[in-house]
Each structure stands twice: as structure tokens, then as C-alpha cells.
């Protein structure tokens, strides 16, 4: 199994819903707490597993705004795991989820250095590395109703721009989306082979223009129709 997310850049409005859903689930979740430094002071700064960035593509007047949520890509070639000296970071054989064992991490930051996607953040209180767990504590928890065994960010996304599934299964929704919409990896040239895939914005739908024949300029030229009220 190769679990991960598809993120639809055509519909993400950058609402940050997924980021805060992630924060609230995971702060009491397996990787929590996700601490916040100076939460009510100058420059508050906490650990988040999912951040939304916004870019403008192209120059005035031909430009476009794109919102890009980013969390761990659960890379197939996860160098963050390779470099970890303590073995705290690992990639699960069963499903490819990359996790950090909080009891083993020594907070050396090396894995964050090895991650090209900014997916790892050091917890300011605990000194251990935090990262997206793909909500492993939701998707496998059989005590949750079946339709809720989804990552918190996926459940909450108001534009349904996030889809979770098995990329190994060619019939899964994620695999289909990647095929149909030309899904892309970010920075493929680095060779991490990230599992999470981004669907690029679509082309504009074509709408026809009403073919006009005559031009009427005044009341006189408009003939009343017989319409029963």
C-alpha cells in the first residue's frame, strides 16, 4: 500500500481549514502535542504539520493566484528517514507512512534538513520533530465510524480539494485523479519520489457567445408577443 494525498490546485481557495483541522486533531493525536511558542505575544510560532502558501504565477495583467497546501509527501525515497541517526524517523513498510517515534527523537533537525518540502517542524516545547502522520491514528482506528477514517484535513476541506487513498491501487480515487488530471509531483528532479500529488489548475471551460443577428435600437422595433400571464 502506498498511502498519500492528492491536492487539487484547481479548487483550493487557501482557507487554512486543513491546516487548523490538522493542528487540532494532532495536538492530542499520536504525534502531539503540537506546541506554540509565545502564543499571545510577539511573533507567535508553533509546530504545524500542514501549511498553506499562496503564489502568484505570471505578471500583471496575465497572472493567476494559486494556493498550495503542503504537508509531508510521504516520499518513496524519504531521505529524512535515511539521515535520522536515532531511528526515530521511519517509513512504515505496510503503507508507506513516514512517522517520527517521539520517544526516540533527539531533536537534531537533520531530517528537516533532508526534507525538501518543509514538512518537518521541531516542537518548541518538546524538542522533538513533528510531522504529518497521515492521521494514522484516524485511518486505522476502527472505533471511528467508517466514513471518518480519513485524515482530519481531508474530512474538513470545504472545497474537497484533498483526497486520501492508496496510490498502489490503480482503481483508487487518487490514482484515477492523478491519471485524469495530469497530477504532478513537486520538485521531482530531487528524486524523493513524493507520494502526494498535485492536480494543476484546469483550463477554462468554453462558453459560447449567443449568436446575434439583428440589433434593435428602440421600443418601436420590439414587437409585443402574446404571452398569457
Amino acid at each position: 500500500m502506498k498511502l498519500g494525498l492528492v491536492v487539487d490546485l484547481d479548487t483550493c481557495v487557501g482557507c487554512h481549514g486543513c491546516a487548523t483541522a490538522c493542528k487540532q486533531w494532532n495536538t492530542s493525536g499520536t504525534i502531539g502535542p503540537l506546541s506554540d511558542k509565545d502564543p499571545y505575544g510577539k511573533d507567535p510560532n508553533g509546530a504545524w504539520l500542514n501549511r498553506i502558501r499562496t503564489y502568484e504565477v505570471g505578471d500583471t495583467p496575465n497572472s493567476k493566484t494559486v494556493h498550495m497546501p503542503m504537508s509531508c509527501m510521504h516520499c518513496e525515497e524519504a531521505a529524512c528517514v535515511t539521515v535520522c541517526p536515532t531511528g526515530a524517523s521511519y517509513k512504515r513498510a505496510e503503507d508507506g507512512i513516514v512517522l517520527v517515534d517521539q520517544d526516540k527523537c533527539m531533536g537534531c533537525n537533520l531530517c528537516a534538513w533532508a526534507c525538501p518540502y518543509g514538512a518537518r517542524e521541531l516542537d518548541p516545547a518538546q524538542g522533538t520533530m513533528k510531522k504529518c502522520t497521515l492521521c494514522v491514528d484516524r485511518i486505522y482506528d476502527q472505533k471511528l465510524p467508517e466514513n471518518e477514517r480519513q485524515p482530519a484535513c481531508v474530512l474538513t476541506c470545504p472545497t474537497k480539494s484533498r483526497v486520501f487513498g492508496d496510490f498502489d491501487d490503480p482503481n483508487s480515487q487518487v490514482s484515477q485523479l492523478v491519471r485524469d488530471r495530469g497530477g504532478k509531483q513537486l520538485m521531482p528532479e530531487l528524486g524523493y519520489n513524493p507520494v502526494n500529488t498535485y492536480l494543476p489548475p484546469r483550463n477554462k471551460p468554453a462558453v459560447e457567445v449567443y449568436k446575434v443577428t439583428s440589433i434593435k435600437q428602440s421600443v418601436k422595433t420590439w414587437v409585443n408577443k402574446m404571452i398569457t400571464r
Binding site: Y55, E56, T65
Partner: peptide
């Protein structure tokens, strides 16, 4: 960012104060 055809500029990094 995956947009290879045109210039790309960051508009918002998603958090006002600097993080980790």
C-alpha cells in the same frame, strides 16, 4: 511549485511571523 511557464512569486507564506 510546478509552474514552469511563467514567473512565480510568493504572495503569502501562510503565517505572519517566522516559524521553524
Amino acid at each position: 511549485t510546478g509552474f514552469t511557464q511563467a514567473s512565480v512569486r510568493l504572495l503569502d507564506q501562510g503565517h505572519s511571523s517566522n516559524g521553524f
